Computed example of a mutant assay.
Amino acid sequence: MTSYYNGFPQSDRDEAIDMINLDELEERAKEVMPEGAYYYIASGSENEWTWRNNIAAFNHFQIVPRALTNMDNPQLDTEFMGMKLKTPVMISPIACHGISHKDAEVATQKGAAAAGALFSSSTYANKSVEDIAAAAPDAPRFFQLYLSKDWDFNEMVFEAIKKAGYKGIFLTVDALVSGYREANLRT
């Protein structure tokens, strides 16, 4: 059965995705996600110039193996702003998880918690901060806030995320209008 969120078909598939690397994950996700949702998540604004340059900058850094250093039991554990994480990974805020799956940010929070990663929810999440927090009550999480000119709204958000146990806020100040996303125009 297909359900829809704001005109986008949603997936309700729950299955393991077998993959060995991120390229394989991206290809498999493309096969199982609704097309519009996939291109919303796997693309950038305009002609994707910034997106491509960000990938190139990320790929510029290399992980250098530490051979012959008695690394019998390597650990990925780390600490970020006083939070202990099992892995040095943060799930960046992405709006509207509900366009890709009916469980939206609740499922993403559960996955991040299972991996020991930090999850950051968007102001434009499809699930409430309370529902996201309830999915993994002890997991670390941040909130991405698009500041509003309405300070009563901002204060309401601050109170809600504080009450729900969010540990920090990422402020987004460069989104005055929705991005012009060419990949989404095509789908």
Rank of each mutant, 00 (worst) to 15 (best):
S43H: 01
T50W: 02
N54D: 03
Q62T: 12
Q62A: 12
P74I: 09
A56K: 11
A57L: 10
I20R: 15
V64H: 12
E27I: 06
N73V: 11
S45A: 15
D77K: 11
C96E: 11
E79G: 01
N47I: 11
R28S: 15
D23S: 14
I91Y: 03
N21R: 07
F61T: 14
I20N: 15
M71A: 11
G98Y: 00
P65A: 08
P88C: 02
E79W: 03
M71C: 12
L85Q: 03
A29Y: 10
P74K: 10
L85W: 00
K86H: 07
D103K: 14
F61G: 09
V89Q: 03
V64C: 09
G82M: 01
A95E: 04
N54Y: 00
H101I: 03
A95Q: 00
G36Y: 05
A67W: 13
E31Y: 05
I94G: 05
A42T: 07
A56N: 05
D77S: 12
H101R: 03
I63G: 11
V32Y: 04
E48Y: 04
I63N: 12
K102G: 01
E48A: 04
Q75K: 10
T87Y: 00
H97Y: 10
E24H: 06
E26S: 06
A29M: 15
P65G: 07
Y40W: 06
I91N: 03
I41E: 08
G44A: 00
L25F: 04
P65H: 06
S43Q: 04
V64A: 08
A56P: 00
K86P: 06
S100T: 09
E105Y: 02
P88G: 02
E24I: 06
D103S: 08
S43Y: 05
D23N: 13
S43I: 04
K102Q: 11
G44E: 05
R66T: 13
E46A: 08
M33A: 02
M83R: 05
H101D: 02
P88E: 00
E27F: 08
K86R: 09
D72Y: 13
W51K: 10
K84G: 07
W51E: 12
N53D: 12
I41A: 13
M90G: 01
P93C: 00
M90L: 02
V89M: 02
G98I: 02
D103R: 15
T69S: 12
Y40L: 08
M81S: 08
E31Q: 13
Y39V: 13
Q75N: 12
E27V: 06
P74F: 05
G44T: 02
L68N: 10
N47E: 13
I99V: 05
N53P: 04
D77Q: 10
C96H: 11
V32H: 07
S45G: 15
N70C: 14
D77C: 07
F61P: 06
A95G: 03
T69M: 12
A29V: 14
M71S: 12
L76K: 08
W51L: 14
R66P: 06
D103Y: 07
G36R: 13
